[in-house]
Amino acid sequence: MQFEQPFEHIDEFERELREGLERRAAPPSLKRKVMERRRHERKRQRSRMIWFERIAALLVVASVAGSVVAGHYAIERRKGEEAKQQVFTALRITNHAFQVMNRQLQERDRNSQ
């Protein structure tokens, strides 16, 4: 009988173990399930990528719009600064003219006295 003296030789035991541990066939559905999960995963990744792209595009548009607005404000501020400088220059010129006129009037007063 096969079981009576099974362990006389280690080789025999190991041979039996090797036979007992032969690879089993995978369930027939395994490959199909793996391929379905892969397709599903790819689809999810694609839709995630589309969302990332949308968000990235939105961020680009927002930053472009922001920089346009910021640029516009900078131009306006610069124009304001220029106008302010022009007003100051005009005031300085006026002030200078008044000073000259004042000096001339004082000289004329002195001469008339």
Binding site: Q2, F3, E16, L17, E19, G20, L21, E22, R24
Partner: peptide, 16 residues
């Protein structure tokens, strides 16, 4: 139990 396994092999597999 797989048909290709010997009875001892199958028992060893479950003992493993």
């Amino acid at each position: 139990v797989e048909v290709q396994s010997t009875p001892l092999g199958s028992r060893l597999e479950s003992l493993l």
